Structures are given as C-alpha cells and as structure tokens.
Amino acid sequence: MLDLKSGIIGQAKVKVSKNNTAKNMKSGALPVFATPAMVALMEEAACTALKDYLEEGEGTVGIKLDIAHVAPTAMDDIVTATAVLDKIEGRKLTFIVEAKDTHKVIGKGVHERFIINNEKFMSKL
C-alpha cells in the first residue's frame, strides 16, 4: 500500500431507480431505496477512497459492516455515500460511512475492509 493514511475520503453516487428499490431487490415491498443498495454504495465509496493507494496486484475485500438505514429515499432522488478511513491496523482498514439523499442522512455506520493480493486471494477459490 502506498502512503495510506487516516482521513482519506471516497464518495459514490446513485440515482434511485426501479433497479435499486427494496421491492425490486426483494428486501422489502416498497418502491424506496433498498438497504442492500445502500450497503453496496457505502462499499463503493470505501473502494473509491483507496483507488490511488493500492499497489499493482492489490485489492480490498469487505469483511464487516455495522450500519443503520435510518430514513427512506424516494424514486429519482440522488444518494451519495461517503467513506472516511478512520483506522489502519496492518492490512485491516476501518471506515466511517454515511449515506445521504438530497434532503437528509439516510444511513451511517462502520465498514471494515482487508487489503489482499488479488492473485493469491483468487487462488484460494
């Protein structure tokens, strides 16, 4: 890893559409932004934070999520997830994550990722 330090920030955005609703993802019955879609967006934000800090052949995998989905988001709204690197413990990275729509915070929590060697990881499958 290259000069990895606490405080780096990544963001990811998505528009709420039929594809990422709770009803479509089968995580609920309503046409609102799905919790699994929020989780994926938070992980994407963490990956984005790391894109300039990993060496050739390195990647990361998510190992833990502790989040709350605290408010609904309607169709056609934009959701932005932010991940801030909080702790570095060897190859284990801890992020503070938050998701907001254009009106409010909709989710927050902690996400852990682990730095891996991509080839070595894939050889274990």
Rank of each mutant, 00 (worst) to 15 (best):
E44G: 12
T35W: 02
F114Q: 04
H103L: 11
V16H: 04
K100L: 07
A34H: 04
K108L: 13
K13H: 10
I115C: 06
C47N: 13
N117H: 11
L85E: 07
Q11K: 15
A99F: 02
T82Y: 04
K13F: 00
V84M: 12
S123L: 09
V84S: 12
F95M: 11
I106C: 14
H69E: 08
Q11T: 15
G62I: 08
V14G: 00
S17K: 10
S6A: 14
F114G: 02
L50Y: 09
A71Q: 13
Q11C: 02
G62F: 07
K18F: 10
L30F: 12
V97T: 14
I9P: 01
K87H: 12
A71F: 04
M1F: 05
I96L: 14
K13I: 01
T102M: 11
I106E: 09
D66Y: 00
S27H: 04
K13A: 03
H103A: 09
M1V: 12
V14N: 05
A46R: 04
T73D: 06
M1E: 11
M122Y: 06
I88T: 10
D52G: 10
E119R: 12
I8T: 09
G59K: 03
K124E: 14
T94C: 10
N20D: 05
G109H: 10
L2W: 00
T21Q: 08
K124S: 14
A40L: 07
T94G: 07
A40T: 04
V97G: 05
E112R: 13
N24E: 15
V105I: 15
I8S: 06
L85I: 09
P31V: 00
D76P: 00
E119N: 10
T60K: 10
G62S: 12
A71P: 01
L54V: 09
N117R: 10
A29I: 07
V79C: 08
A81H: 04
V61S: 10
A81F: 02
I115L: 06
V110F: 03
A40K: 06
